[in-house]
Design a protein around this nucleic acid. Sequence first.
RNA 1: GGCCCCAUCGUCUAGUCUGGUCCAGGACGCUAGCUUCUCAGGCUAGAGACUGGGGUUCAAAUCCCCAUGGGGCUACCA
Length: 426
Amino acid sequence: MVRVRFAPSPTGNLHIGSARTALFNWLYARHSKGKFILRIEDTDKERSKPEYLDEILGSLKWLFMDWGEELVFQSKRFGIYKGYAQKLVEKGLAYFEGPAIIFKVDKAKSVSFDDMIRGKVDFSTDDIKDQVLIKTDQTPAYNFACVVDDSEMKITHVIRGDDHISNTPKQVLIYEALGLPMPQFAHIPLILSKDGGRLSKRHGATSISEYKNMGFLPEALVNYLALMGWAPGNDIEILPIDEIIKLFDVKDVNKTGAIFDMDKLSWMNGQYIKKMEPARLAKETENFLKDKNIVDDKFDAEKWRGITAAYRERSRTLEDFISVYRIFFSDEIEYDEKAVEKYLKKPNSKDIMNRCKTAVESDNKFDKASVEESYRKLADELKLKAAELIHPTRVAISGKTVGAGLFEMMEILGREKVLKRLSKFC
RNA sequence: GGCCCCAUCGUCUAGUCUGGUCCAGGACGCUAGCUUCUCAGGCUAGAGACUGGGGUUCAAAUCCCCAUGGGGCUACCA
């Protein structure tokens, strides 16, 4: 049975690159009906923090990755690593250097492994120094703890970032010295920043929680991340997670690093929003706004459903709904100064707004069809194009030149609010 | 510096294993047009790539070599 693991160290939030590594492991486990196990590499007591662990677990869950089994903490296994190291000392393959235990590397030998993605990779032990197994402070070194745990956890496939490729020969040597069976290795390419280097904070958001915060949907992010280094073929790009599981195979992962493209992620997120059930979109956006403490007691769930439906087609992230919320529920709207200048400061602007106000007052049903009729009639009377009424009205009632259809907005806003906002420009 | 990995439009990629169907396909972004009350969306069109050089072959994006470029590692961090 396939057993894979994701082994984060809780020294920071879940990075977008690590999330992709976790995802590939998880997808492979699901695809092959195997197990996905989590191991927490918290050997560095100084840098490991419980809040990072919470953040990492929360982000994994948010991205639908479930691990099911109990977590393995390396910090609870120091005795085990020590035992393995002592065994190597007894065999004469490692030696003490003070309290530390060091692994002896024989020179002039070749070490190689078969990578599922890259094929055979060769190294010479001439380029590998003796390896620290147990550090002076008695904690295990990464390459050692990793081998011991992968072996004890019966990991069959080690799927990890490219940056570990030169760690692998060191680990292979340890497997051999310990006489343990080796897992299959698969080194996936790194996710790069716009300038082709490592993705770091100065390039913008790097952690999964930041993306959540920016209003991205987990299904869109999973879909996008899966496409970094892997393609389902047939020119398909948007596909549900079940479909990804069905089609995914580590062997099909590319060798080349991929640059993270926010534009495409945004586009994809927009596609997911557009296809979302209206009721769910209303709920998701509501939760999003609540998390941000934007929702106040004026909130009206019924009304919100209509609003989100009207904005669904034109939104890319949940964050887009913040300004939408303010237009419909806040008494104080923010005016785009340029728009006001352009549409509401003309010599005849006040007259026109006055006539619009009258039309709004005298409209009987005040639903979008009827307001539209009133407006078009008024435009005829004034010998103006309907657009010359529509644009200034939109700016007057929403503060912006962009947004949903004007008559739809008016219906949702209601006659009273529309009149109040129009009055400001009469 | 040493070692390792990688190389198709600006970006993500299909095609590379099993050479011919590829004067290289799709998507994002960009540009133009249409739709329209704005924006968005939708639709249509357009610009846009096989890093270079040598081989091998009747034939190379695809195989081999070299060069170049990029990335990673080179910690008693993980």
